[in-house]
């Protein structure tokens, strides 16, 4: 018990130290900017680029401090043990239903983790969701197929699925042959995946990650074979296609929240709270900016118009 408490406090101290270091750097820059002269933004940018600290990027430093501070604050708040209320996501609630249906029908489950590499944060979020899907599939003894577009993603997916099988208490059912690398070429990958969809007719299809033109090709093929389809992406241009053709879609930030939500870890859930606080600040900033700009239209020479212009040039570029 004591050891657990000691480890917990050490981890909190480590988090606080890292957070302090991460916040200290932009803070120093913000202070440095305050000491600098008030040149025009363009002139300041040129002068600042030659100095050691890029003072022209002070506003961004402040924004980073606020957002990161909010997220870290959320995590630390979660560690105090306060209850965290997170809105349920219908798409995630449908995961069990979709895999259960596939099991009953004796068909496979298809998981497509997008077409980007592990450098894309969406792929990382997709792999986290894959872990949860794989665990449920292992519990139900459903066959899960994961074709990947990048070899590193394949390695990460294999790790996640294997870990899920261990967690489900069924390590013997793990088959790494079901997680394959196909090709880096976007449409070559689409041809291979849609071809296997038409041949194998999976009963549940998950599309979680970064998608581009292939989103509709996957979703329409999935629709034609009557599969339950659950998608999640942070590519705004592809969201309409998934919404039109899939049963459930995780839209933008929901997708990132989902990976934390599914992990069930308090730290990760706390970060969602911090993220929400950041969103609240963004909404407040937008409202204040709109209000100032609107009032400024009626009194273009007044202090409010000047304030609106200053905010616009400082934060808006």
């Amino acid at each position: 018990m004591m050891r657990e408490i000691r480890e917990r406090s050490r981890s909190t101290m480590l988090l606080a130290a890292t957070a302090a270091a991460a916040i200290a750097i932009p803070c120093c820059i913000a202070l440095a900017e305050g000491a600098g002269d008030a040149a025009t933004p363009a002139g300041a940018a040129v002068a600042a680029s030659d100095s050691v600290v890029r003072t022209d990027r002070g506003p961004l430093a402040i924004a980073i401090v606020i957002v990161c501070g909010a997220v870290i604050g959320g995590i630390m708040l979660a560690r105090t043990g306060r209850p965290l209320k997170i809105r349920r996501l219908a798409a995630l609630d449908a995961v069990d239903e979709a895999i259960g249906r596939a099991t009953e029908m004796g068909r496979s489950v298809l998981f497509v983790p997008g077409i980007q590499d592990m450098t894309d944060i969406q792929t990382v979020a997709g792999i986290t969701i894959l872990g949860r899907v794989a665990k449920t599939a292992a519990e139900y003894d459903a066959k899960l197929e994961v074709p990947t577009c990048r070899s590193i993603v394949m390695a990460a997916a294999r790790d996640a699925v294997q870990a899920a099988h261990f967690e489900a208490g069924r390590p013997e059912t793990y088959n790494e042959g079901n997680i394959n690398y196909l090709t880096d070429e976007q449409f070559g990958y689409v041809a291979a995946v849609t071809g296997s969809m038409v041949r194998d007719k999976p009963a549940a299809c998950f599309y979680m990650g970064a998608f581009y033109a292939e989103s509709l090709l996957f979703a329409e093929n999935g629709n034609s074979i009557g599969a339950i389809q659950i998608a999640g992406t942070a590519e705004p241009s592809q969201l309409p296609f998934f919404v039109a053709a899939c049963d459930y879609t995780l839209i933008g930030e929901e997708f990132f929240a989902a990976s934390a939500y599914l992990s069930g870890e308090r730290d990760q859930l706390g970060s969602i709270k911090g993220q929400d606080f950041g969103k609240l600040l963004a909404v407040a900033a937008i409202l204040i900016g709109c209000l100032l700009a609107t009032v400024g239209v009626f009194a273009p020479e007044g202090a409010i118009a000047h304030a609106a212009e200053t905010i616009k040039t400082t934060f808006g570029g």
Binding site: A42, V46, Y212, A213, E235, P236, S237
Partner: peptide, 19 residues
Amino acid sequence: PMPDAFKVVGGSTGVQVSQ
């Protein structure tokens, strides 16, 4: 990083334009 150094123009597919 350098907003005043050069101009940027873009061409895009129809589906990507919203971004």
